[in-house]
């Protein structure tokens, strides 16, 4: 499920040695292009773990389902908080579902 980078939003994490998506990708797939924007060097090799999508400070990386497996137009967007993540999922009909999920700290507190 390859990541798609919005070139208008990606700023290459400015002057950092490596953009955050490149730092975290477990498959070493995200890297900077000559245009100083991030891209996935081999779409077929992505595991769809969404680590890049979660870590991007600009919200520039969208995780896509390959068309051979799922139809075009759905989205799943994380908004990372300190101890929780809020996910927004939109299906093909535009139905929106939102989920707030705890990520750290004792459950129920």
């Amino acid at each position: 499920m390859p990541p798609k980078v919005d070139l208008n939003k990606c700023d290459g994490c400015q002057a950092q040695d490596e953009p955050l998506c490149e730092q975290v990708c477990p498959g070493n797939l995200m890297t900077l292009g000559e245009n100083a924007k991030a891209y996935c060097r081999e779409l077929r090799d992505c595991w769809d773990c969404m680590s890049c999508t979660k870590v991007c400070p600009k919200g520039a990386i969208d995780t896509r389902v390959p068309y051979q497996l799922g139809y075009h137009g759905a989205s799943l967007t994380p908004m990372m908080g300190t101890n929780s993540v809020t996910w927004t999922c939109v299906d093909l009909n535009g139905n929106v579902e939102r989920f707030r999920v705890k990520t750290r700290g004792r459950y129920g507190e």
Binding site: C49, T63, L76, W87
Partner: peptide, 20 residues
């Protein structure tokens, strides 16, 4: 159920949405 997936393989929730 979807929250469980979001904690382990979040893109499964996207996969379901991509098939309505």
């Amino acid at each position: 159920l979807k929250i469980d997936y979001l904690c382990e393989r979040p893109s499964f929730v996207l996969f379901l949405a991509s098939r309505n």
